[in-house]
Amino acid sequence: MAAIIKVKDINKSYQRDNFEVPVLNNISLDVEEGEFLALMGPSGSGKTTLLNLIAGIDKPDKGSILVADTDIAKLSESELAKWRSHNVGFVFQFYNLIPVLTAFENVELPLLLTNLTKKERKEHVVAALTLVGLEDRMSHYPKQLSGGQEQRVAIARAIVTDPVIIVADEPTGDLDKKSADDILLLLERLNSEYKKTIVMVTHDPNAASKAHVQRHLDKGDLV
């Protein structure tokens, strides 16, 4: 199977006050289409930074990142924003739902950037929320949902645009075991049934065990 994500010789460092802190050192990585990859490593190892680079929300200092044949390292900020809206679904550790919007409206948010009609948007949102088992919670606000339910809304938001890849940063990090298992099951289902390519950052060996491939980072190096 062809690699849908090709990370080649990337370096990334951050400026902290007067210090330059290297985060990633000459990382190269391929992720095949339909693969479920877990990036593991201790805090500060650079796994979230690598995920951010793959998702196009940060840029490498050096190297190239090809996602579905687009070198996203060369895109401008506005081109990247447009690219992200079409190609990447995001799942965050703390869900990051908009508190003043209902579950339906949160999931609908990325669709506002498309040319879909209101009716079409509704169909997509209902389908996504049904897929994550929250069809009966559409009009609920985030504060009216449990942590597990909030994360499922976030997953529905991530898949509603039918993205090429889904990136998940510690998706179970803020959940109890039962809810975490439900979320992992959902991600597995998205991967196996809907053939979604998933890149997940996690500390949790149990979560990582659900992935096809596990890669470990340590002090900015893939090991």
Partner: peptide, 14 residues
Amino acid sequence: TREYAVMKTLGFSA
């Protein structure tokens, strides 16, 4: 701040 970051992540522009 975090919500604006989320919106930018989702593709919302300046």
